[in-house]
Design a binder for these strands. Structure first.
Lengths: 124, 124
DNA sequence: ACAATGCATTGAAGATTGTCAATGTATTTG
DNA sequence: CAAATACATTGACAATCTTCAATGCATTGT
């Protein structure tokens, strides 16, 4: 190792301009993890969806869309829209009985979501 | 109390049309609480902001904007934009030293936010 | 004073989200 | 079958969010 010819090249490059922070540190939260957590949070981050989840959690298995519509300050298509989002995410599901659709929470999926969210934001 | 004249009026009104759910129940989560929780979640629900919070939490008091910009897949104005949002919410703050701005987490505010979020979604 | 640097702000453009009237689809009831 | 009911879907619109080039503003080094 003949390092006698190049004494302090790396040092000059670093010290030129007096850098603010020496460490180039990638975030411990990876881009993928951040995206996943962001998706989870985004799904919850709407007052109507939160109230829907709240109502479905309280009244196990007996909530039809007309009940939700009556209790929420939005019209029926909007309720259906948010129900569809929650259903696509696997958080809720429904069972049609004749003319009505009874929605219910998928407790395991909701617990898994809650575990991911709580676990990740604990590290912040 | 002369209830002899009106025997089953209320019953007929209820049973007409065979309602889906008898109970009209307001959500336990009030509209105000839902809005507050939604705001908290919305602030966190972005991968860049999550990674910023993560970096600031790890490296106490020595993170300048150029570091964030180097570690994140967005340009400098975008970094400044997200920093401004987090700062307006009181989650972070900065201290200018000469040419650089060192950002840091307000641990108490972040803890309060985390407590609100965890406390509320525990009830879902 | 001048050039360079770090960061904030502005303004514009595109993407996403939220809402609802109108309409469609089943199902029940008369 | 026809009317009524519960819900889903479509399509359009407005509002909000996200991003970045351009620019502005201090501060530092020459």
């Amino acid at each position: 190792m003949n390092n006698t010819t190049v004494p302090t090249i790396e040092l000059t490059e670093r010290s030129r301009g007096s850098r603010c922070c020496a460490n180039d540190s990638a975030p411990r939260l990876s881009a993928e993890a951040a995206q996943q957590l962001s998706d989870d949070l985004q799904l919850l981050a709407h007052p109507i969806r939160l109230q829907i989840l709240d109502m479905l959690t309280r009244r196990e298995g007996q909530v039809c869309v007309c009940d939700l519509e009556a209790a929420l300050p939005v019209k029926q298509p909007t309720v259906s829209h948010h129900l569809k989002l929650l259903r696509a995410a696997g958080l809720i599901d429904c069972e049609r009985q004749g003319l009505w659709a009874y929605y219910f929470v998928r407790r395991d999926a909701l617990a898994a979501l809650r575990a991911r969210v709580v676990g990740q934001i604990a590290g912040l």
